[in-house]
Design a protein around this nucleic acid. Structure first.
Lengths: 268, 268
DNA sequence: AAAATTCTTTGATGTAAGTCAAACGACTGA
DNA sequence: TCAGTCGTTTGACTTACATCAAAGAATTTT
């Protein structure tokens, strides 16, 4: 979600990135491996792990993050079946998580962006049950789960935060079940776009336009529909003047119309 | 799931119930309110919270359970919007959890039975985001979340267990997303029946027959299909000799056929 | 025991989304 | 720069499931 498409120069080109104390244009960023990873001076601290920490505690929190890891576009952070050792906080980049049925059908279970935590699926069985694939070059903080648990015992505020992160994921999946079980194609796409733009906006991006980092097929997999239906729905919204779409570029022209499609009741 | 239908006397009539040290026929049970609630002598301890505890630790665990609460069939343990205070361990009975969209569409997000934990949805926002409805008279252990967190800090084995319970719920919801997003009606019903019978079997019930505690509509809501389609699919399986169905009674005659429908690959 | 209510089954028909197919646009690597 | 690949769009046709409807079974109420 960070890189600007050359054909769409009007898109905000700053990228939310941890550890820099300023917003920097994407093409100028420098993130030498030597920079100490520290939650205490990370841009993402309001979104990521360190909520409600006072400055002294924050230093302790830095201890949970052991290393940083880069994942190139298309590569996996972890795969289904891998031993579970760590949670990962996304510093930069964009991921999808997905599971495959025995006969090869793929279900995208989520899209994750900077400040979000992935890997929670691995706790229950000590092995991951999904794949985490980078949809753009990414950079994650590796948080060995043993460290997280140890520090959680020491800091109730961290403990509570970890619980909230897991609970949030449960609640998110509940709402996806509602989408998949009850909503029609247009409602699903409207909800998807609104959710995406809301999360991007929380990270300092435009609340009206963005570049999709996933294919139509991946969107369709997430929303339980075929890529052709995703494409047709985008085209329909475009024809109706609700959005502007050109390939991966999306501009939301009538957010209220999207909200109305998603939820006819609460919008006048 | 405990009560035997009078027209199906061959069904195992014992009921898994916490705090009794023996299996007792349902109609003979006595559970006076005066009995001290104690995990240490609960039948469900292998399924519920107290995994991997030694006898001394187990006594401490008893402290998390503050009270017991009865919920009558049709009543709610909690509702969406209620302040979150506690997790609940089901001792007896059967629940559904569900969410409603603004325009009144209901999505069942899960069915829970003895030994399972409900209420995790409330942690993130300090308010519940779903309703928990008893589908039969139920009895739950109330575990104030503050107690759970406090004791988790003291006992790493409990901490780990709480994390596993939350992770398990995330993984379960992932697999429901796969069902809803990729599977056809017959596959969903096959998966549903296999999952139900497996969980009942783990609780000492028959692995072939049981009484459904939910309506066709509730099954349909959970699986993203209409009640008529649920009914037709049951009838189809019955015609094919895979199951026997009569109203809420279900007997699985050909489990391998169900497995094959659910997953054509791994079954010969 | 009758009446009312709720749940389930089954049939007839409709439709939203899937499937198949083809063309086009964008990106990639020699 | 061009060929090859991958992703997207759009049209024509199909289908799995939804919807509508009615009857029958089970359960609850009076």
């Amino acid at each position: 979600m960070c890189q600007a498409n050359s054909s769409n120069k009007d898109i905000k080109t700053v990228c939310l990135e941890g550890n820099d104390n300023s917003w920097q244009p994407m093409n100028q960023r420098t993130t030498p491996e030597t920079i100490k990873i520290a939650c205490s001076n990370c841009n993402l601290r309001e979104l990521c792990m360190p909520i409600g920490f006072n400055p002294e505690d924050m230093q302790k929190l830095d201890e949970v993050v052991a290393t940083r890891r880069r994942v190139k576009q298309g590569e996996r952070l972890f795969s289904s079946g891998d031993p579970f050792t760590s949670l990962y906080a996304i510093r930069t980049g964009f991921f999808k998580t997905c599971i495959s049925s025995e006969d090869g059908r793929e279900q995208v279970t989520g899209f994750q962006m900077a400040g979000e935590i992935i890997g929670l699926d691995g706790i229950v069985s000590d092995h991951h049950s999904c794949n985490a694939v980078a949809l753009e070059d990414a950079d994650v903080c590796v948080m060995p789960f043993a460290n997280v648990e140890e520090l959680s015992r020491e800091f109730p505020v961290l403990q509570r935060h970890v619980h909230k992160i897991m609970s949030r994921e449960i609640v998110r999946e509940n709402s996806i079940m509602m989408l998949l079980g009850n909503m029609r194609a247009e409602e699903r796409i409207a909800a998807f776009l609104l959710n995406l733009v809301q999360r991007l906006h929380a990270r300092g991006f435009s609340q009206s336009e963005f570049i999709l980092r996933m294919t139509r097929e991946e969107i369709g997999s997430y929303l339980g529909m075929k890529l052709e239906t995703v494409s047709r729905t985008f085209s329909k919204f475009s024809d109706d003047g609700i959005i502007e779409v050109k390939q991966r570029y999306v501009k939301i022209i009538e957010p209220d119309a999207l909200k109305k499609i998603f939820n006819p009741q609460t919008c006048s």
